[in-house]
């Protein structure tokens, strides 16, 4: 299912900093068409910053970003969104004071009327149809993530980027959500998942990238990542202990 040599997202030599605090050092990440890439690492490793840079919410101090071969370094986040990059940021990707219906209206574009958006969203998550007029902020955490996924996917993106979907959610709900991501990937959407809970996503990922201290420590086949590597990256366990 992976078509090699057709990169959808290419981050080259990215360095980034918050004020004086530099958080990324020379990061290179590529997502090929139809591939699921899991970006792993302990907190503070810089994973979310990678996503902020990739979605253009944050300007890197160095390096370039291309989407489907198009150099988009310095473009606005809204431009990327219009080009088919769907990002679901950390926390809940919904507008809490807008109703479910209004949240879905945010996906409306030229040639994509609300009726189509709604049909696609409700087909994927029927529960949303029942909650149509409810304020998004009053949905459960899992439903909120469903809404943000549904809204993003209604635009038929080429690249889906997910940031810490599991944050603050019960493990069962998380498992359900990632089951959906698997379905999405099978439909041919390239996915970049940022996740602290490595085991949860390794099962659905083709490629894994492990980061710590703002650098990429490992990049390769998701199946090559074993417990020992992870536990040393996350808990500082010496590998000899295993």
């Amino acid at each position: 299912m992976t078509t090699p040599h057709e990169p959808i997202l290419e981050l080259k030599n990215i360095s980034a900093s918050y004020d004086a605090i530099s958080v990324l050092h020379d990061v290179n990440i590529t997502v090929q068409r139809g591939e699921v890439v899991a970006l792993l690492g302990p907190n503070g490793a810089g994973k979310s910053t990678v996503l902020k840079v990739a979605s253009a919410l944050m300007r890197p101090t160095r390096g370039s970003i291309s989407i489907a071969g198009l150099d988009l370094t310095g473009a606005a986040a809204s431009e990327l969104a219009r080009l088919g990059v769907c990002t679901i940021p950390e926390g809940r990707g919904v507008f809490p004071n807008l109703t479910v219906h209004e949240n879905l209206q945010m996906a409306v574009r030229k040639g994509l009327p609300i009726s189509v958006v709604q049909d696609r969203a409700f087909a994927r998550f029927p529960i949303l149809a029942e909650r149509r007029t409810q304020l998004a902020g009053t949905l459960s955490g899992g439903q909120q993530q469903m809404l943000s996924l549904a809204r993003g996917l209604a635009t038929e993106p080429v690249l889906l980027m997910l940031d810490e979907m599991s944050m603050g959610l019960a493990p069962l709900v998380v498992a359900d959500l990632y089951e959906q991501v698997k379905v999405i990937a099978a439909e041919g959407v390239s996915v970049l998942v940022v996740e602290q809970f490595a085991r949860t996503v390794l099962g659905i990922a083709d490629t894994a990238v492990v980061m710590s201290h703002g650098r990429v420590r490992f990049a390769g086949n998701a199946r090559e990542v074993d417990e020992a590597t992870l536990s040393s990256a996350y808990l500082g366990t010496k590998e000899a202990d295993e």
């Binding site: 302990p42 599991s166 498992a175 085991r199 536990s231």
Partner: peptide
């Protein structure tokens, strides 16, 4: 339990 908390529950 700690390892699970960090790495996520085994699927």
């Amino acid at each position: 339990e700690v390892i699970d908390a960090y790495l996520g529950a085994v699927r």
